[in-house]
Design a protein around this nucleic acid. Structure first.
Lengths: 252, 252
DNA sequence: AGTGTTTATCGTCAGGCAGACGACTATGAT
DNA sequence: ATCATAGTCGTCTGCCTGACGATAAACACT
Protein backbone atom coordinates (compact mmCIF):
# COMPACT_ATOMS: atom_id res chain seq x y z
CA UNK A 1 0.00 0.00 0.00
CA UNK A 2 2.93 2.35 0.53
CA UNK A 3 4.37 4.42 -2.27
CA UNK A 4 7.74 5.02 -0.66
CA UNK A 5 9.84 5.57 -3.82
CA UNK A 6 12.71 3.61 -2.36
CA UNK A 7 10.52 0.60 -1.71
CA UNK A 8 9.39 -0.47 -5.16
CA UNK A 9 11.34 -2.56 -7.63
CA UNK A 10 11.91 -0.75 -10.94
CA UNK A 11 10.39 -2.23 -14.08
CA UNK A 12 10.91 -1.60 -17.74
CA UNK A 13 7.57 -1.10 -19.51
CA UNK A 14 7.18 -1.81 -23.20
CA UNK A 15 4.35 -1.98 -25.68
CA UNK A 16 4.18 -4.93 -28.06
CA UNK A 17 1.92 -4.90 -31.08
CA UNK A 18 -0.21 -7.60 -32.64
CA UNK A 19 -0.87 -6.03 -36.03
CA UNK A 20 -3.32 -8.08 -38.04
CA UNK A 21 -4.39 -7.77 -41.64
CA UNK A 22 -6.00 -9.97 -44.27
CA UNK A 23 -3.87 -10.64 -47.34
CA UNK A 24 -4.97 -12.87 -50.17
CA UNK A 25 -7.79 -14.26 -47.99
CA UNK A 26 -5.38 -15.23 -45.19
CA UNK A 27 -5.02 -13.67 -41.75
CA UNK A 28 -1.51 -12.25 -41.39
CA UNK A 29 0.44 -10.59 -38.59
CA UNK A 30 3.32 -8.18 -38.73
CA UNK A 31 6.62 -9.75 -37.62
CA UNK A 32 10.03 -8.12 -37.31
CA UNK A 33 13.39 -9.83 -37.24
CA UNK A 34 15.43 -9.32 -34.10
CA UNK A 35 18.81 -7.78 -34.76
CA UNK A 36 20.38 -8.50 -31.40
CA UNK A 37 20.38 -11.09 -28.64
CA UNK A 38 18.49 -12.65 -27.11
CA UNK A 39 16.62 -14.45 -29.87
CA UNK A 40 18.85 -12.72 -32.44
CA UNK A 41 17.66 -13.46 -35.95
CA UNK A 42 14.32 -14.80 -34.71
CA UNK A 43 11.00 -13.21 -35.57
CA UNK A 44 9.17 -11.18 -32.95
CA UNK A 45 6.26 -8.83 -32.60
CA UNK A 46 7.07 -5.16 -33.10
CA UNK A 47 7.31 -3.10 -29.95
CA UNK A 48 9.43 -0.83 -27.85
CA UNK A 49 9.83 1.06 -24.62
CA UNK A 50 7.21 3.39 -23.29
CA UNK A 51 8.74 6.83 -22.93
CA UNK A 52 8.70 8.75 -19.70
CA UNK A 53 6.09 11.29 -20.78
CA UNK A 54 3.92 9.02 -22.89
CA UNK A 55 0.56 7.35 -22.39
CA UNK A 56 0.36 3.63 -23.13
CA UNK A 57 -1.98 4.19 -26.08
CA UNK A 58 0.29 6.92 -27.40
CA UNK A 59 3.29 4.63 -27.19
CA UNK A 60 1.41 1.92 -29.08
CA UNK A 61 0.29 4.38 -31.76
CA UNK A 62 3.83 5.69 -32.12
CA UNK A 63 5.28 2.21 -32.51
CA UNK A 64 2.58 1.33 -35.03
CA UNK A 65 3.39 4.41 -37.08
CA UNK A 66 7.11 3.70 -36.91
CA UNK A 67 6.69 0.12 -38.09
CA UNK A 68 3.96 0.51 -40.68
CA UNK A 69 3.35 4.20 -41.32
CA UNK A 70 -0.28 3.63 -40.31
CA UNK A 71 -2.21 6.34 -38.52
CA UNK A 72 -4.58 5.23 -35.83
CA UNK A 73 -8.27 5.49 -36.41
CA UNK A 74 -9.89 8.01 -34.11
CA UNK A 75 -12.80 6.19 -32.42
CA UNK A 76 -14.80 9.42 -32.52
CA UNK A 77 -14.64 9.48 -36.32
CA UNK A 78 -16.33 6.37 -37.69
CA UNK A 79 -15.37 5.12 -41.11
CA UNK A 80 -12.23 7.21 -41.17
CA UNK A 81 -10.31 6.50 -44.32
CA UNK A 82 -7.24 4.34 -44.11
CA UNK A 83 -6.86 4.40 -40.36
CA UNK A 84 -6.10 1.36 -38.27
CA UNK A 85 -8.01 0.19 -35.25
CA UNK A 86 -5.94 0.05 -32.06
CA UNK A 87 -6.92 -1.26 -28.64
CA UNK A 88 -5.18 -2.54 -25.58
CA UNK A 89 -4.97 -6.32 -25.47
CA UNK A 90 -3.39 -7.55 -22.23
CA UNK A 91 -0.28 -7.16 -20.14
CA UNK A 92 2.45 -9.76 -19.77
CA UNK A 93 4.78 -9.56 -16.83
CA UNK A 94 6.23 -12.94 -15.96
CA UNK A 95 9.57 -12.56 -14.26
CA UNK A 96 11.93 -14.20 -16.67
CA UNK A 97 9.95 -13.50 -19.83
CA UNK A 98 12.93 -11.39 -20.82
CA UNK A 99 16.17 -13.02 -19.69
CA UNK A 100 17.97 -9.75 -19.07
CA UNK A 101 15.66 -7.83 -16.79
CA UNK A 102 12.18 -7.40 -15.49
CA UNK A 103 10.05 -6.21 -18.40
CA UNK A 104 6.31 -5.71 -18.29
CA UNK A 105 4.82 -5.54 -21.75
CA UNK A 106 1.44 -3.96 -22.44
CA UNK A 107 0.34 -5.69 -25.62
CA UNK A 108 -1.93 -3.88 -28.05
CA UNK A 109 -4.01 -5.19 -30.91
CA UNK A 110 -4.10 -3.34 -34.22
CA UNK A 111 -6.30 -4.19 -37.20
CA UNK A 112 -5.38 -2.74 -40.56
CA UNK A 113 -6.46 -3.00 -44.19
CA UNK A 114 -4.14 -4.75 -46.58
CA UNK A 115 -2.72 -1.68 -48.30
CA UNK A 116 0.57 -0.94 -46.55
CA UNK A 117 3.87 -2.61 -47.28
CA UNK A 118 5.81 -3.36 -44.13
CA UNK A 119 8.77 -1.28 -43.17
CA UNK A 120 10.88 -1.62 -40.07
CA UNK A 121 12.53 1.70 -39.57
CA UNK A 122 13.21 1.88 -43.29
CA UNK A 123 14.60 -1.63 -43.49
CA UNK A 124 11.92 -3.67 -45.18
CA UNK A 125 13.90 -6.92 -45.14
CA UNK A 126 13.51 -7.04 -41.37
CA UNK A 127 9.72 -6.84 -41.36
CA UNK A 128 7.12 -8.98 -43.05
CA UNK A 129 3.52 -10.01 -43.06
CA UNK A 130 3.51 -13.61 -41.88
CA UNK A 131 0.55 -15.93 -41.98
CA UNK A 132 -0.79 -16.33 -38.47
CA UNK A 133 -1.06 -20.06 -38.92
CA UNK A 134 2.64 -20.30 -39.64
CA UNK A 135 3.67 -18.15 -36.71
CA UNK A 136 1.59 -20.16 -34.28
CA UNK A 137 2.62 -23.55 -35.59
CA UNK A 138 5.09 -25.17 -33.25
CA UNK A 139 7.56 -26.46 -35.79
CA UNK A 140 10.91 -25.74 -34.22
CA UNK A 141 12.43 -27.82 -31.45
CA UNK A 142 14.14 -26.46 -28.36
CA UNK A 143 17.35 -27.88 -26.96
CA UNK A 144 15.34 -30.31 -24.87
CA UNK A 145 13.37 -31.43 -27.88
CA UNK A 146 10.23 -29.61 -26.80
CA UNK A 147 8.25 -27.86 -29.53
CA UNK A 148 9.06 -24.17 -29.77
CA UNK A 149 7.06 -21.58 -31.62
CA UNK A 150 9.03 -19.56 -34.15
CA UNK A 151 8.44 -16.31 -32.26
CA UNK A 152 10.78 -14.86 -29.64
CA UNK A 153 9.97 -14.36 -25.96
CA UNK A 154 6.34 -15.11 -25.12
CA UNK A 155 5.20 -13.51 -28.34
CA UNK A 156 3.46 -16.65 -29.58
CA UNK A 157 1.17 -16.44 -26.56
CA UNK A 158 0.58 -12.73 -27.13
CA UNK A 159 -0.17 -13.32 -30.80
CA UNK A 160 -2.55 -16.15 -29.95
CA UNK A 161 -4.36 -13.93 -27.47
CA UNK A 162 -4.61 -11.14 -30.03
CA UNK A 163 -5.96 -13.45 -32.71
CA UNK A 164 -8.52 -14.85 -30.30
CA UNK A 165 -9.57 -11.32 -29.35
CA UNK A 166 -10.02 -10.41 -33.01
CA UNK A 167 -11.93 -13.61 -33.71
CA UNK A 168 -14.38 -13.09 -30.91
CA UNK A 169 -14.74 -9.35 -31.32
CA UNK A 170 -15.84 -9.40 -34.95
CA UNK A 171 -18.75 -11.54 -33.78
CA UNK A 172 -20.49 -8.79 -31.91
CA UNK A 173 -18.97 -5.60 -33.31
CA UNK A 174 -18.40 -3.97 -36.65
CA UNK A 175 -14.65 -4.32 -36.17
CA UNK A 176 -14.19 -6.47 -39.25
CA UNK A 177 -14.53 -3.31 -41.32
CA UNK A 178 -11.16 -2.23 -39.90
CA UNK A 179 -9.63 -4.89 -42.16
CA UNK A 180 -11.29 -3.36 -45.21
CA UNK A 181 -10.42 -0.32 -47.31
CA UNK A 182 -12.69 2.71 -46.88
CA UNK A 183 -15.06 1.37 -49.52
CA UNK A 184 -15.71 -2.32 -49.82
CA UNK A 185 -18.24 -4.84 -51.01
CA UNK A 186 -20.25 -7.32 -48.99
CA UNK A 187 -18.19 -10.10 -50.52
CA UNK A 188 -14.94 -8.49 -49.42
CA UNK A 189 -16.26 -8.15 -45.89
CA UNK A 190 -17.36 -11.77 -45.97
CA UNK A 191 -13.90 -12.88 -47.01
CA UNK A 192 -12.51 -11.01 -44.01
CA UNK A 193 -14.73 -13.03 -41.71
CA UNK A 194 -13.78 -16.22 -43.51
CA UNK A 195 -10.06 -15.47 -43.23
CA UNK A 196 -10.20 -14.49 -39.56
CA UNK A 197 -12.40 -17.40 -38.56
CA UNK A 198 -10.97 -19.88 -41.02
CA UNK A 199 -14.41 -21.06 -42.13
CA UNK A 200 -16.62 -20.71 -45.19
CA UNK A 201 -19.77 -18.64 -44.82
CA UNK A 202 -22.90 -18.80 -46.92
CA UNK A 203 -22.81 -15.70 -49.16
CA UNK A 204 -26.60 -15.34 -49.18
CA UNK A 205 -27.10 -15.54 -45.44
CA UNK A 206 -24.12 -13.29 -44.84
CA UNK A 207 -25.49 -10.72 -47.24
CA UNK A 208 -28.89 -10.80 -45.54
CA UNK A 209 -27.28 -10.41 -42.12
CA UNK A 210 -24.98 -7.47 -42.79
CA UNK A 211 -27.34 -5.53 -45.03
CA UNK A 212 -30.22 -6.15 -42.66
CA UNK A 213 -28.42 -4.78 -39.59
CA UNK A 214 -29.26 -1.07 -39.37
CA UNK A 215 -26.24 1.22 -39.15
CA UNK A 216 -23.69 -1.43 -40.02
CA UNK A 217 -23.20 -0.68 -43.70
CA UNK A 218 -23.91 2.49 -45.65
CA UNK A 219 -24.12 2.20 -49.44
CA UNK A 220 -21.96 4.72 -51.24
CA UNK A 221 -23.85 4.38 -54.50
CA UNK A 222 -20.84 3.10 -56.41
CA UNK A 223 -20.26 -0.41 -57.69
CA UNK A 224 -17.18 -2.39 -58.49
CA UNK A 225 -16.28 -5.47 -60.38
CA UNK A 226 -12.75 -5.85 -59.04
CA UNK A 227 -13.56 -9.31 -57.75
CA UNK A 228 -14.90 -10.52 -61.07
CA UNK A 229 -18.46 -11.59 -61.69
CA UNK A 230 -21.49 -9.39 -61.34
CA UNK A 231 -20.73 -5.85 -60.14
CA UNK A 232 -21.19 -5.44 -56.40
CA UNK A 233 -22.43 -2.47 -54.42
CA UNK A 234 -19.83 -0.51 -52.50
CA UNK A 235 -20.36 0.30 -48.84
CA UNK A 236 -18.76 2.31 -46.10
CA UNK A 237 -18.78 1.30 -42.46
CA UNK A 238 -21.82 2.78 -40.73
CA UNK A 239 -21.86 4.37 -37.33
CA UNK A 240 -22.98 1.24 -35.51
CA UNK A 241 -20.15 -0.36 -33.54
CA UNK A 242 -22.14 -3.09 -31.81
CA UNK A 243 -23.79 -5.91 -33.71
CA UNK A 244 -26.95 -7.07 -32.04
CA UNK A 245 -27.76 -9.87 -32.47
CA UNK A 246 -24.18 -10.93 -33.14
CA UNK A 247 -22.81 -12.63 -36.22
CA UNK A 248 -22.70 -16.29 -35.32
CA UNK A 249 -19.41 -18.10 -35.73
CA UNK A 250 -20.06 -21.59 -37.08
CA UNK A 251 -19.14 -24.53 -34.85
CA UNK A 252 -15.64 -25.96 -35.10
CA UNK B 1 13.71 -1.31 -30.15
CA UNK B 2 16.85 -1.47 -28.03
CA UNK B 3 16.95 -3.02 -24.59
CA UNK B 4 20.02 -1.16 -23.39
CA UNK B 5 19.35 -1.21 -19.63
CA UNK B 6 20.52 2.35 -19.27
CA UNK B 7 18.11 3.59 -21.91
CA UNK B 8 14.70 2.87 -20.42
CA UNK B 9 12.78 5.00 -17.93
CA UNK B 10 12.00 3.13 -14.70
CA UNK B 11 8.36 2.52 -13.82
CA UNK B 12 6.62 1.38 -10.68
CA UNK B 13 4.20 -1.42 -11.45
CA UNK B 14 1.20 -2.08 -9.22
CA UNK B 15 -1.86 -4.28 -9.31
CA UNK B 16 -5.24 -2.77 -8.46
CA UNK B 17 -8.24 -4.94 -7.73
CA UNK B 18 -11.87 -4.56 -8.67
CA UNK B 19 -13.44 -7.04 -6.25
CA UNK B 20 -17.14 -7.46 -6.92
CA UNK B 21 -19.77 -9.29 -4.94
CA UNK B 22 -23.55 -9.25 -4.64
CA UNK B 23 -24.89 -8.30 -1.23
CA UNK B 24 -28.57 -8.01 -0.47
CA UNK B 25 -29.35 -8.06 -4.20
CA UNK B 26 -26.99 -5.16 -4.93
CA UNK B 27 -23.68 -5.19 -6.76
CA UNK B 28 -20.91 -4.11 -4.40
CA UNK B 29 -17.20 -3.46 -4.74
CA UNK B 30 -14.44 -3.61 -2.15
CA UNK B 31 -13.08 -0.18 -1.24
CA UNK B 32 -10.28 0.70 1.16
CA UNK B 33 -9.65 4.02 2.83
CA UNK B 34 -6.33 5.67 2.01
CA UNK B 35 -4.19 6.34 5.05
CA UNK B 36 -1.72 8.70 3.46
CA UNK B 37 -1.49 11.39 0.82
CA UNK B 38 -2.33 11.87 -1.89
CA UNK B 39 -6.09 11.38 -1.57
CA UNK B 40 -5.65 10.72 2.17
CA UNK B 41 -8.92 9.65 3.73
CA UNK B 42 -10.53 9.02 0.35
CA UNK B 43 -11.73 5.60 -0.77
CA UNK B 44 -9.71 3.67 -3.31
CA UNK B 45 -9.48 0.24 -4.86
CA UNK B 46 -7.22 -2.20 -3.03
CA UNK B 47 -3.85 -2.79 -4.61
CA UNK B 48 -0.12 -2.70 -4.17
CA UNK B 49 3.27 -3.06 -5.74
CA UNK B 50 4.27 -6.05 -7.78
CA UNK B 51 7.28 -7.65 -6.18
CA UNK B 52 10.48 -8.29 -8.03
CA UNK B 53 10.07 -12.05 -8.30
CA UNK B 54 6.32 -12.17 -8.75
CA UNK B 55 4.02 -12.79 -11.69
CA UNK B 56 1.22 -10.26 -12.26
CA UNK B 57 -1.46 -12.85 -11.50
CA UNK B 58 0.40 -13.93 -8.38
CA UNK B 59 0.60 -10.35 -7.18
CA UNK B 60 -3.12 -9.89 -7.73
CA UNK B 61 -3.92 -13.12 -5.90
CA UNK B 62 -1.67 -12.12 -3.03
CA UNK B 63 -3.31 -8.72 -2.71
CA UNK B 64 -6.75 -10.31 -2.85
CA UNK B 65 -5.84 -12.72 -0.06
CA UNK B 66 -4.38 -9.90 2.03
CA UNK B 67 -7.49 -7.77 1.69
CA UNK B 68 -10.21 -10.37 1.90
CA UNK B 69 -8.71 -13.70 2.89
CA UNK B 70 -10.13 -15.15 -0.32
CA UNK B 71 -8.28 -17.88 -2.14
CA UNK B 72 -8.33 -17.74 -5.91
CA UNK B 73 -10.34 -20.27 -7.80
CA UNK B 74 -8.13 -22.55 -9.86
CA UNK B 75 -9.53 -22.43 -13.41
CA UNK B 76 -8.66 -26.10 -13.79
CA UNK B 77 -10.98 -27.06 -10.95
CA UNK B 78 -14.54 -26.12 -11.82
CA UNK B 79 -17.00 -25.49 -9.02
CA UNK B 80 -14.26 -25.20 -6.46
CA UNK B 81 -15.76 -24.36 -3.12
CA UNK B 82 -15.48 -20.81 -1.91
CA UNK B 83 -12.84 -19.67 -4.36
CA UNK B 84 -12.95 -16.34 -6.12
CA UNK B 85 -12.63 -15.79 -9.84
CA UNK B 86 -9.67 -13.62 -10.82
CA UNK B 87 -8.74 -12.30 -14.25
CA UNK B 88 -6.70 -9.49 -15.67
CA UNK B 89 -8.79 -6.47 -16.58
CA UNK B 90 -6.68 -3.76 -18.21
CA UNK B 91 -3.60 -1.65 -17.62
CA UNK B 92 -3.61 2.03 -16.79
CA UNK B 93 -0.48 4.02 -17.36
CA UNK B 94 -1.23 7.69 -17.92
CA UNK B 95 1.70 9.84 -16.91
CA UNK B 96 0.30 11.87 -14.05
CA UNK B 97 -2.26 9.33 -12.88
CA UNK B 98 -0.20 9.24 -9.70
CA UNK B 99 1.10 12.71 -8.85
CA UNK B 100 4.31 11.45 -7.28
CA UNK B 101 5.83 9.20 -9.91
CA UNK B 102 5.23 7.13 -12.98
CA UNK B 103 3.04 4.22 -11.95
CA UNK B 104 1.62 1.64 -14.33
CA UNK B 105 -1.23 -0.28 -12.75
CA UNK B 106 -2.35 -3.66 -14.03
CA UNK B 107 -5.96 -3.84 -12.88
CA UNK B 108 -7.53 -7.20 -12.14
CA UNK B 109 -11.15 -8.19 -11.76
CA UNK B 110 -12.21 -10.53 -8.95
CA UNK B 111 -15.68 -11.97 -8.45
CA UNK B 112 -16.55 -13.42 -5.06
CA UNK B 113 -19.54 -14.81 -3.20
CA UNK B 114 -21.01 -12.73 -0.42
CA UNK B 115 -19.57 -14.67 2.50
CA UNK B 116 -16.43 -12.82 3.55
CA UNK B 117 -16.36 -9.79 5.79
CA UNK B 118 -13.86 -7.22 4.58
CA UNK B 119 -10.58 -6.82 6.36
CA UNK B 120 -7.77 -4.50 5.36
CA UNK B 121 -4.66 -5.89 6.90
CA UNK B 122 -6.62 -6.59 10.05
CA UNK B 123 -8.18 -3.14 10.21
CA UNK B 124 -11.80 -3.61 9.22
CA UNK B 125 -12.75 0.04 9.60
CA UNK B 126 -10.57 0.89 6.60
CA UNK B 127 -12.25 -1.51 4.22
CA UNK B 128 -15.87 -1.86 3.21
CA UNK B 129 -18.22 -3.25 0.61
CA UNK B 130 -19.62 -0.22 -1.15
CA UNK B 131 -22.50 -0.24 -3.59
CA UNK B 132 -21.13 0.18 -7.09
CA UNK B 133 -23.77 2.75 -7.89
CA UNK B 134 -22.60 4.95 -5.04
CA UNK B 135 -18.94 4.67 -5.93
CA UNK B 136 -19.59 5.62 -9.54
CA UNK B 137 -21.96 8.45 -8.80
CA UNK B 138 -20.27 11.77 -9.31
CA UNK B 139 -21.48 13.53 -6.20
CA UNK B 140 -18.45 15.39 -4.93
CA UNK B 141 -17.20 18.62 -6.45
CA UNK B 142 -13.58 19.43 -7.19
CA UNK B 143 -12.01 22.79 -6.49
CA UNK B 144 -13.12 24.01 -9.89
CA UNK B 145 -16.65 22.85 -9.30
CA UNK B 146 -16.32 19.95 -11.68
CA UNK B 147 -17.97 16.69 -10.59
CA UNK B 148 -15.54 14.32 -8.91
CA UNK B 149 -16.10 10.66 -8.25
CA UNK B 150 -15.56 9.60 -4.66
CA UNK B 151 -12.68 7.30 -5.59
CA UNK B 152 -9.01 8.27 -5.60
CA UNK B 153 -6.73 8.39 -8.64
CA UNK B 154 -8.37 7.00 -11.79
CA UNK B 155 -10.04 4.27 -9.79
CA UNK B 156 -13.55 5.30 -10.81
CA UNK B 157 -12.58 4.56 -14.40
CA UNK B 158 -11.02 1.25 -13.43
CA UNK B 159 -14.09 0.28 -11.44
CA UNK B 160 -16.37 1.25 -14.31
CA UNK B 161 -14.32 -0.86 -16.69
CA UNK B 162 -14.43 -3.81 -14.30
CA UNK B 163 -18.17 -3.57 -13.84
CA UNK B 164 -18.69 -3.38 -17.58
CA UNK B 165 -16.47 -6.44 -18.04
CA UNK B 166 -18.50 -8.37 -15.47
CA UNK B 167 -21.80 -7.24 -17.01
CA UNK B 168 -20.85 -8.35 -20.47
CA UNK B 169 -19.05 -11.51 -19.46
CA UNK B 170 -21.94 -13.10 -17.56
CA UNK B 171 -23.87 -12.89 -20.82
CA UNK B 172 -21.84 -15.51 -22.59
CA UNK B 173 -20.11 -17.41 -19.79
CA UNK B 174 -21.01 -19.17 -16.61
CA UNK B 175 -19.12 -16.56 -14.63
CA UNK B 176 -22.16 -15.47 -12.66
CA UNK B 177 -21.76 -18.63 -10.58
CA UNK B 178 -18.58 -17.07 -9.14
CA UNK B 179 -20.90 -14.73 -7.22
CA UNK B 180 -22.72 -17.70 -5.69
CA UNK B 181 -21.82 -20.05 -2.86
CA UNK B 182 -20.81 -23.58 -3.86
CA UNK B 183 -24.45 -24.68 -3.85
CA UNK B 184 -27.17 -22.33 -4.97
CA UNK B 185 -30.65 -22.23 -6.40
CA UNK B 186 -31.80 -21.01 -9.78
CA UNK B 187 -33.46 -18.10 -8.04
CA UNK B 188 -30.24 -17.08 -6.31
CA UNK B 189 -28.42 -17.20 -9.63
CA UNK B 190 -31.15 -15.12 -11.20
CA UNK B 191 -30.84 -12.49 -8.49
CA UNK B 192 -27.12 -12.30 -9.30
CA UNK B 193 -27.92 -11.47 -12.90
CA UNK B 194 -30.53 -8.97 -11.79
CA UNK B 195 -28.11 -7.26 -9.41
CA UNK B 196 -25.24 -7.10 -11.89
CA UNK B 197 -27.38 -5.92 -14.78
CA UNK B 198 -29.77 -3.85 -12.71
CA UNK B 199 -32.82 -5.28 -14.43
CA UNK B 200 -35.64 -7.67 -13.58
CA UNK B 201 -35.67 -11.01 -15.36
CA UNK B 202 -38.63 -13.31 -15.89
CA UNK B 203 -38.16 -16.20 -13.43
CA UNK B 204 -39.77 -18.74 -15.76
CA UNK B 205 -37.74 -17.91 -18.83
CA UNK B 206 -34.59 -17.67 -16.78
CA UNK B 207 -35.24 -21.08 -15.27
CA UNK B 208 -35.83 -22.58 -18.69
CA UNK B 209 -32.65 -21.03 -20.06
CA UNK B 210 -30.21 -22.07 -17.33
CA UNK B 211 -31.59 -25.55 -16.74
CA UNK B 212 -31.82 -26.17 -20.47
CA UNK B 213 -28.18 -25.33 -21.16
CA UNK B 214 -26.22 -28.57 -20.90
CA UNK B 215 -23.25 -28.47 -18.56
CA UNK B 216 -24.17 -25.15 -16.98
CA UNK B 217 -25.86 -26.41 -13.81
CA UNK B 218 -25.55 -29.77 -12.06
CA UNK B 219 -28.26 -30.67 -9.54
CA UNK B 220 -26.85 -31.76 -6.21
CA UNK B 221 -30.06 -33.50 -5.16
CA UNK B 222 -30.63 -31.25 -2.18
CA UNK B 223 -33.25 -28.59 -1.80
CA UNK B 224 -33.47 -25.46 0.27
CA UNK B 225 -36.10 -23.07 1.39
CA UNK B 226 -33.79 -20.33 2.64
CA UNK B 227 -35.40 -17.83 0.29
CA UNK B 228 -38.89 -18.61 1.55
CA UNK B 229 -41.62 -20.08 -0.57
CA UNK B 230 -41.55 -23.44 -2.23
CA UNK B 231 -38.29 -25.36 -1.72
CA UNK B 232 -35.88 -24.95 -4.60
CA UNK B 233 -33.42 -27.43 -6.05
CA UNK B 234 -29.77 -26.88 -5.24
CA UNK B 235 -27.19 -26.83 -8.03
CA UNK B 236 -23.47 -26.68 -8.43
CA UNK B 237 -21.74 -24.93 -11.34
CA UNK B 238 -21.20 -27.39 -14.16
CA UNK B 239 -18.08 -27.72 -16.21
CA UNK B 240 -19.32 -25.56 -19.07
CA UNK B 241 -17.68 -22.15 -19.07
CA UNK B 242 -19.18 -20.80 -22.29
CA UNK B 243 -22.86 -20.13 -22.70
CA UNK B 244 -24.00 -20.72 -26.23
CA UNK B 245 -26.35 -19.17 -27.15
CA UNK B 246 -25.70 -16.43 -24.62
CA UNK B 247 -28.03 -15.11 -21.98
CA UNK B 248 -29.59 -12.03 -23.48
CA UNK B 249 -29.36 -8.82 -21.52
CA UNK B 250 -32.63 -6.91 -21.85
CA UNK B 251 -32.56 -3.56 -23.62
CA UNK B 252 -31.98 -0.38 -21.61
C1' DA C 1 -57.70 -25.99 9.40
C1' DG C 2 -58.21 -22.42 6.06
C1' DT C 3 -56.46 -18.38 3.55
C1' DG C 4 -53.09 -15.52 1.61
C1' DT C 5 -48.23 -14.78 0.25
C1' DT C 6 -44.06 -16.13 -1.61
C1' DT C 7 -41.13 -18.65 -4.55
C1' DA C 8 -40.34 -22.49 -7.74
C1' DT C 9 -41.43 -25.01 -11.80
C1' DC C 10 -43.93 -26.57 -15.97
C1' DG C 11 -46.45 -25.37 -20.31
C1' DT C 12 -48.16 -22.78 -24.23
C1' DC C 13 -47.99 -19.66 -27.96
C1' DA C 14 -46.40 -16.19 -31.32
C1' DG C 15 -42.55 -13.74 -33.44
C1' DG C 16 -37.79 -13.36 -34.89
C1' DC C 17 -33.69 -15.07 -36.61
C1' DA C 18 -30.43 -18.45 -38.56
C1' DG C 19 -29.17 -22.32 -41.58
C1' DA C 20 -30.07 -24.62 -45.92
C1' DC C 21 -30.72 -23.83 -50.39
C1' DG C 22 -33.31 -22.48 -54.98
C1' DA C 23 -33.50 -18.91 -58.41
C1' DC C 24 -32.15 -15.11 -60.97
C1' DT C 25 -28.83 -11.30 -62.49
C1' DA C 26 -24.80 -9.15 -64.39
C1' DT C 27 -20.27 -9.19 -65.59
C1' DG C 28 -15.72 -11.28 -67.92
C1' DA C 29 -13.42 -15.32 -70.18
C1' DT C 30 -13.30 -18.91 -73.86
C1' DA D 1 -23.02 -18.38 -77.57
C1' DT D 2 -21.64 -20.62 -73.61
C1' DC D 3 -19.47 -21.00 -69.26
C1' DA D 4 -17.65 -19.50 -64.95
C1' DT D 5 -17.88 -16.26 -61.34
C1' DA D 6 -19.94 -13.43 -58.03
C1' DG D 7 -23.85 -10.82 -56.21
C1' DT D 8 -28.69 -10.43 -54.73
C1' DC D 9 -33.46 -11.78 -53.62
C1' DG D 10 -36.71 -15.38 -51.70
C1' DT D 11 -38.51 -19.40 -49.33
C1' DC D 12 -38.88 -22.74 -45.83
C1' DT D 13 -38.02 -24.99 -41.47
C1' DG D 14 -36.47 -25.30 -36.86
C1' DC D 15 -34.87 -23.17 -32.70
C1' DC D 16 -34.92 -19.75 -29.31
C1' DT D 17 -36.87 -15.87 -26.87
C1' DG D 18 -40.32 -13.00 -24.64
C1' DA D 19 -44.86 -12.85 -22.65
C1' DC D 20 -47.63 -15.01 -19.65
C1' DG D 21 -51.08 -18.70 -17.70
C1' DA D 22 -51.17 -22.44 -14.41
C1' DT D 23 -49.74 -25.43 -10.76
C1' DA D 24 -46.86 -26.80 -6.63
C1' DA D 25 -44.95 -26.44 -2.10
C1' DA D 26 -43.49 -24.09 1.56
C1' DC D 27 -44.55 -20.30 5.52
C1' DA D 28 -47.42 -16.70 8.11
C1' DC D 29 -51.40 -15.49 9.57
C1' DT D 30 -56.13 -15.90 11.56
Amino acid sequence: MSYDPSAFPPFAVTVDLVVLTVRRHVLCALAVRRGEPPFQGRWALPGGFVRADEDLAQAAARELAEETGLRVHDPAVPAQAGGAHLEQLATYGDPGRDPRMRVVSVAHLALAPDLPAPRAGGDASNARWAQVGELLQQTDRGRNGEPVAPLAFDHAQILADGVERARSKIEYSSLATAFCPPEFTVGELRRVYEAVWGVALDPRNFHRKVTGTPGFLVPTGGTTTRQGGRPAQLFRAGGATLLNPPMLRPEV
